[in-house]
Write a protein that binds this DNA or RNA. Structure first.
Lengths: 146, 146
DNA sequence: TTATAAAAGGACATCAATGTCCTTTTATAA
DNA sequence: TTATAAAAGGACATTGATGTCCTTTTATAA
């Protein structure tokens, strides 16, 4: 399971993308409201994202968050990596420090399939691909697709 | 990812099973050492397991932990359910409160596959099936299979 | 040029997961 | 019957994730 912070981050980025497509640069308040997260905490997460160049921001009047051209293919993996690290893609499901093909835990083979499947998803899907689905009306960002 | 407590619990139960097959009933100290977990914390987790009837215990001299005949087909799901609950099998990967087939988040379809795959594993594998692999030398409980 | 609106950032607060310590209960061996 | 060994249990400590508040920086509009 992804951490709450990572979930907030992904939803926030998707919302920024959707607004950017409407030529808007949402601010912390608007983002926090949309993704149903506490405003001050959302601000921290957005700081992490901009500090790590996953997204850009402008201070001052008329400022807000947005993607520039280098940031238009942002995989979910990139986001997870920055927000919570990538332990979930390496860690043994059984909790062993030393677990690998040569020295497998009794869950190794089966768990690997699931873990690699998840890795494949987050390496394939991007903030933009998810946003596209919402824009098309095939998925929702929060309750209803408004 | 499973919580540390759940990992400890699963490893502890597997070790108890292995020792039981040798006609032994290990105590907290022996279990904690084997699974490389803090002794007092291990004791708490073992308490949870016995209180929930996943395993049995005897107090006093010569006491320890063991399985009785009703407890010889313990799925990993049963353990997870008792130790950390089953949020990981229901929760939306995107963090939405309302996410289902009719109102899907943009990750719904792909994530479902992974989540259900994991559910299948933990409903199929049991403490006994994992222990069997270790007994056969096909997997390890900690570093080396001793 | 100044007031304002917005992000950035530092310091602190809360809560749940993890971990520790000490006392109580209980079964068995001597 | 008593001493001992072991689990049970209560209270507290630590840590990391989550969350809050207030100040600082900076871009823009008036």
């Amino acid at each position: 399971m992804l951490s709450k912070s990572t979930e907030y981050a992904i939803r926030a980025l998707v919302f920024v993308q959707l607004r950017n497509w409407e030529q808007k640069r949402p601010g912390v308040g608007e983002i926090a409201k949309e993704i149903e997260a506490p405003e001050a905490y959302t601000a921290k997460i957005l700081q992490t994202l901009t500090k790590n160049k996953l997204m850009d921001s402008m201070k001052g009047r008329g400022g807000g968050f947005f993607f520039n051209d280098n940031q238009s293919n942002l995989t979910l993996y990139d986001v997870i990596h920055v927000v919570e690290g990538d332990a979930c893609f390496h860690k043994c499901g059984f909790g062993l420090k030393q677990c690998n093909n040569d020295n497998p835990c009794p869950l190794h083979e089966q768990y690997k399939v699931v873990r690699d499947g998840f890795f494949e998803i987050v390496k394939t899907e991007t903030i933009q691909s998810l946003s596209e689905k919402i824009k098309q009306g095939d998925a929702v960002l929060n309750r209803l697709n408004t």
